[in-house]
């Protein structure tokens, strides 16, 4: 249990997938202009991450990792080099299926998330979380917690950023530093603030 809490705290604050590992920067910079869209995309990322990370855990541990095919009678096979292409296919398929399911059964949610779902398939945060999950040897429960909490951390970062950018509209930013430059520097300052949590130990 303590283990799970520390994974949660670590992936929301200290090891925030956006601010410490720079994943999902592209959509972070492009979508953080407006508060509503930032919240929508944040929710969508959290949702997709909580599903794809455990799904990829199952795929990796029952099909790809060294010796995983023992149940099918091939104990000597190591397919782990295929993980990049398989993970991206799993993510794209899940995103597509989710989009159809949400459209059919939860129209209000579809209205809120709809536009963002397809974008997510190529968001590096999603693939990155799956690859980190393999590299850090999480077990199934840990991968569920890791997926959900890093999605939450990403959402926290993009919503904060949208709030700051709203205020920034009235600030006098030097020419040349506008838009992209100043966003990077703000993100840097935010990352510093998040690093302060690294003192927490459980």
């Amino acid at each position: 249990m303590e283990n799970l809490v520390s994974i949660f705290l670590d992936s929301v604050f200290v090891g925030n997938i956006l601010l410490a590992y720079f994943l999902g920067m592209c959509s972070f910079l492009a979508i953080s202009r407006k508060m509503e869209t930032a919240i929508g995309l944040g929710l969508a990322v959290t949702f997709v991450l909580s599903i794809t990370t455990p799904a990829n855990w199952l795929v990796y541990h029952y099909l790809l990792s060294p010796g995983a095919l023992a149940w099918a009678g091939f104990p000597g096979i190591d397919l782990s080099f295929l993980k990049f292409i398989i993970f991206i296919a799993v993510i794209a398929a899940i995103v597509q299926a989710l989009e159809m399911i949400i459209d059919r059964y939860l129209p209000p949610l579809y209205m809120a998330l709809g536009v963002f779902l397809p974008l997510i398939a190529v968001n590096c945060a999603i693939l990155g979380a799956s690859l980190f999950m393999v590299e850090r040897n999480y077990n199934f429960i840990e991968s569920v917690v890791y997926g959900a909490s890093s999605g939450f951390g990403w959402m926290l970062a993009i919503v904060t950023m949208a709030g700051i950018r709203k205020k920034l509209r009235y600030a006098n930013v030097p020419k040349g530093l506008e838009n992209f430059g100043i966003s990077m520097i703000i993100t840097g300052l935010m990352a510093m603030a998040f690093m302060l949590f690294s003192g927490i130990t459980l």
């Binding site: 040349g176 530093l177 430059g181 520097i185 993100t187 840097g188 990352a191 510093m192």
Partner: peptide, 25 residues
Amino acid sequence: GLMVLAPGAFIAIGLIVWLQKTVSK
């Protein structure tokens, strides 16, 4: 120490963009 951590990268890239935009303008 800041430069080794993540924030250093963000700030460095922000400054490079600033420089580049100013020069090419």
